[in-house]
Design a protein around this nucleic acid. Structure first.
Length: 586
RNA sequence: GCCCGAAUAGUUUAGUGGUAAAACAAACCCUUGGUAAGGGUUAGACUGUGGGUUCGAUUCCCACUUCGGGCUCCA
């Protein structure tokens, strides 16, 4: 089935749902019901609250209406007639008025709007639709949620029902199975099962604690990034977690993000806040002494922990937290170094995605929205120049990209790297932002070759964005079965009985010498139970030590978490195999 | 912050208007084993918190807290 006809069917299914809801709950006001990536939704203003249990009822009604069979009939009517027809539908009226005022042109013919009749349900809609309800395939209502009318939190909250629809039953089943799979690899669940992190109420919401294993995982990521940075000529810095709020008033962050900075507190009569980003701290390192063009580009970087007061409802495991470590860098440079520096960073981003086995990504070219001027530094010319330059960079580096208006930072446009994980879900990771303003605003300078004072421009580089978020993403991406180089524990040593504990310790020492992260499981359990434990913990390798191994000096039996038996292997060879894999980021 | 839902032992779950059951995990004992769970014993929950209804609430109602699904937001 083509994307287009699938979309048509889902849209028709959304109408079928609205039809059913209108029948079941008289007085319902309907808002909008588009298709989305994996299905559709429809927003309702219902006469009373409904819950998840009502979904089954609505589904039954839908089936009933579908079976009775009706056609989707389009017609074009005058605006006045439409206003009358939808006199009890304030949301539709609002849209009709917008169309008639020329606010949107997507409904076609002038002076008229398109409506669809489906059974006893008539909807303002440009279509397209199926011709008959009989063509609707297999559907399922998924969940119920609140959503603001027009996505504006000042508006009324409507009830949104999500659903999906497929042509074939197997396709629907596959989709539902996939949803279940996603639940199984939920990073919050795996985080507990694999003992990677905890969120403790006594510490606070959105403030995750990384356990020893979680910390090892984080450390592998940061160490890897550090290696990339050393290769690329970055200089690491360290900065404190707090700062005088004065600083953010100068940069403009205060005006834009005051609400999400952690409560100002007084020290020696000055006002301080927890740092919500690292940029200004890095700028102050830059401005600590006179700079020459010979020092540029100056690439300062730091895994800097920041604090942001995110609203309670926005917090989600590691994906959205209040304390986050940004693998942040600020490259201060001259304007004619911009393209090279972007190319350098794009290369780092690609290498990192490779290391995480994230196979597909595209770039979101996030530009300003001139109609929403208050969100951005006022200087249309510079915005245009920066935006054009980024587009050129994206093209020259042959990146797939989509333009997104209104997604820029207040100080500049950016390239956001959107990756797809092993289940096909999309995440935003790296971000490369071009800032032509801040150097001037903060009076950062360098002396150019002719002795003149100039302002540097800045590339903000977040390699993963937030380490916490990245942990969440890769936990789900790998379902906890990390590649060897990332695994917190790479080898579990399983002595068959306590008689072989000394030999196990010797093997552990051999591996420790080569920086391999191994552990001995000397619990009073059978081998089978120990293997089961390690397998559930998704430890890449298990080595077994018993009588057989003790008789053959220097040999161990090796098993993988996938259940492969590598048989007796010389310990040196096994270590070599591991170090090779780690070297190759496998 | 807003809409909807949930909350029982460390974890996963059962259950009832008359103060709770199990599995795994833990501790101890027996067992010293060969590729996904050896056996036993013990301990562990004032059923998230605070109110209300009731002779009596873990169970029904309300508020709060936390968590989840979304919305809004994400420098």
């Amino acid at each position: 089935m083509s994307d287009l006809s699938l979309d048509k069917m889902r849209h028709s299914c959304a109408h079928l749902m609205a039809y059913a809801v209108s029948e079941l709950y008289p007085g319902t006001k309907v808002a909008i019901g588009p298709t989305i990536e994996n299905g559709f939704y429809y927003d309702f203003d219902l006469p009373g609250p409904i819950g998840e249990t009502d979904l089954a009822k609505i589904e039954r009604k839908m089936s009933e209406l579908k079976e009775k069979s009706f056609d989707y009939i389009q017609s074009w009517i005058e605006v006045d007639r439409a206003l009358e027809l939808f006199s009890h539908q304030p949301y539709k009226q609002e849209i009709i008025k917008e169309i008639s005022e020329g606010g949107r042109d997507d409904f076609g013919q002038k002076g008229k709007v398109s409506i669809y009749q489906s059974g006893k349900f008539t909807d303002l809609c440009k279509g397209p639709h199926l011709s008959s309800s009989k063509e609707i395939g297999y559907f399922k209502l998924l969940n119920i949620a609140g959503a603001y009318w027009r996505g504006d939190e000042k508006n009324k909250m409507l009830t949104r029902i999500y659903g999906t629809c497929f042509e074939k039953k197997e396709e629907l089943d596959h989709f539902l199975w996939q949803q279940e799979e996603a639940k199984k690899r939920d990073h919050r669940k795996l985080g507990r099962e694999l003992d990677l992190f905890v969120i403790n109420d006594s510490i606070g919401k959105g403030l995750p604690l990384l356990t020893p294993k979680g910390t090892l995982l984080k450390k592998q990521i940061l160490d890897y990034e550090y290696r990339l940075e050393v290769e690329a000529g970055f200089k690491q810095v360290s900065t404190p977690h707090i700062s005088r709020s004065e600083l953010y008033k100068k940069t403009g962050h205060w005006q834009h993000y005051r609400e999400t900075m952690y409560a100002p507190f007084g020290i020696d009569g000055d006002e301080y806040v927890l740092k919500p980003m690292n940029c200004p701290h890095h700028y102050m390192i830059y401005s600590s002494k006179p700079r020459s063009y010979r020092e540029l580009p100056l690439r300062l970087s730091e895994p800097g922990t920041c604090y942001r007061y995110e609203k309670t409802g926005e917090l989600a495991g590691l994906l959205r937290v209040r304390s986050l470590t940004i693998d942040d860098s600020h490259i201060l440079m001259t304007e004619n170094q911009i393209e090279d520096e972007f190319a350098l960073c794009i290369d780092m981003v690609k290498k990192m995605f490779d290391a995480f086995k994230l196979k597909s990504f595209y770039v979101r070219l996030s530009l300003s929205d001139p109609s929403d001027a208050i969100k951005y530094i006022a200087d249309e010319g510079t915005w245009k120049r920066a935006g054009d330059l980024l587009e050129k960079i994206v093209k020259n580096n042959r990146l797939d990209y989509k333009v997104a208006k209104g997604e820029a930072s207040f100080y500049g446009p950016k390239l956001d790297f959107m990756v797809r994980d092993s289940l096909g879900r999309e995440w935003q990771m790296s971000t490369l932002q071009l800032d032509l303003f801040m150097g001037k605003r903060l009076g950062l300078t360098y002396t150019d070759e002719s002795g003149q004072e100039k302002h540097p421009v800045i590339l903000h580089r977040g390699l993963t964005g937030s380490i916490e978020r990245t942990l969440g993403i890769i936990i789900e991406h790998f379902a906890g079965a990390f590649p060897v180089w990332l695994s917190p524990i790479q080898v579990e040593i399983l002595p068959i009985s306590e008689k072989y504990a000394p030999l196990a310790k010797k093997m552990l020492a051999e591996m420790a010498k080569k920086q391999i992260r191994a552990e001995i499981n000397d619990e009073n359990k059978t081998l089978g139970a120990k293997i089961r434990q390690s397998t559930l913990q998704k430890t890449p390798y298990m080595i077994i030590i018993g009588e057989k191994e003790s008789k053959k000096n220097g040999f161990v039996s090796v098993r993988t978490r996938e259940g492969g038996d590598l048989g007796l292997v010389k310990i040196d060879e096994f270590i070599k195999r591991l170090t090779d894999q780690i070297e190759k980021l496998e």
